[in-house]
Every structure is written in structure tokens, then in C-alpha cells.
């Protein structure tokens, strides 16, 4: 059963909030992981690892650098589910 983009955003926000301490409602699609959410590369890889498990997808390392915003990650995970 694939997750909707809304569910993916909510799930991703929970992961980011746990990792950073930011409130979940600050994790919006247009936010940049590095510039807005101040997430370093080690934290980003943690988020990727947890997101892979949560959504049952694989996010290749080569792909992570293209995930600039939260919305990019939601779109990638959504597409990768099928």
C-alpha cells in the first residue's frame, strides 16, 4: 500500500523533528534541508536511513545530493514506492 504524498510529508517531518528538535510543522515542502533546517550531511544520511525504513524504499547515495528541499524528498520517495 503506497503512502500518499501527504503521509510521506508527515512521516518525514517526524523523522526530521526527532533528528533536529525542530517542530514538525516547520518541516514544509519548500524548506531546504541545509539552508533552512540547518541539517548537516551526517544528519541528512540519518534521515535518509530512517526514511528508507519507514517508507520501504531505497534512496541511492547518488540521489541524496539532488534532494535539496523537503518537497524533493517527498516526491522522490513517492515515486520510488511504485
Amino acid at each position: 500500500m503506497a503512502h500518499s504524498e501527504q503521509e510521506i510529508l508527515a512521516g518525514l517531518a517526524e523523522i526530521v523533528a526527532e533528528e533536529t528538535g525542530l517542530p514538525t510543522d516547520s518541516v514544509l515542502p519548500e524548506k531546504s534541508f541545509t539552508d533552512d533546517l540547518d541539517i548537516d550531511s551526517l544528519s541528512m544520511m540519518t534521515i535518509v536511513t530512517l526514511a528508507e525504513e519507514k517508507f520501504g524504499v531505497t534512496i541511492p547515495d547518488d540521489e541524496v545530493k539532488n534532494l535539496t528541499t523537503v518537497g524533493d524528498a517527498v516526491s522522490f520517495i513517492s515515486a520510488a514506492q511504485s
Binding site: 551526517l42 544520511m45 536511513t49
Partner: peptide, 13 residues
């Protein structure tokens, strides 16, 4: 239990 892909990046530090 889950394989290398699930080992967290913060493990070593």
C-alpha cells in the same frame, strides 16, 4: 536483523 543499509550514520561517533 535488517542489514547494513539500516545501520545509522551516527553509530561510529
Amino acid at each position: 536483523e535488517k542489514g547494513a543499509r539500516r545501520v545509522l550514520p551516527m553509530t561510529v561517533p
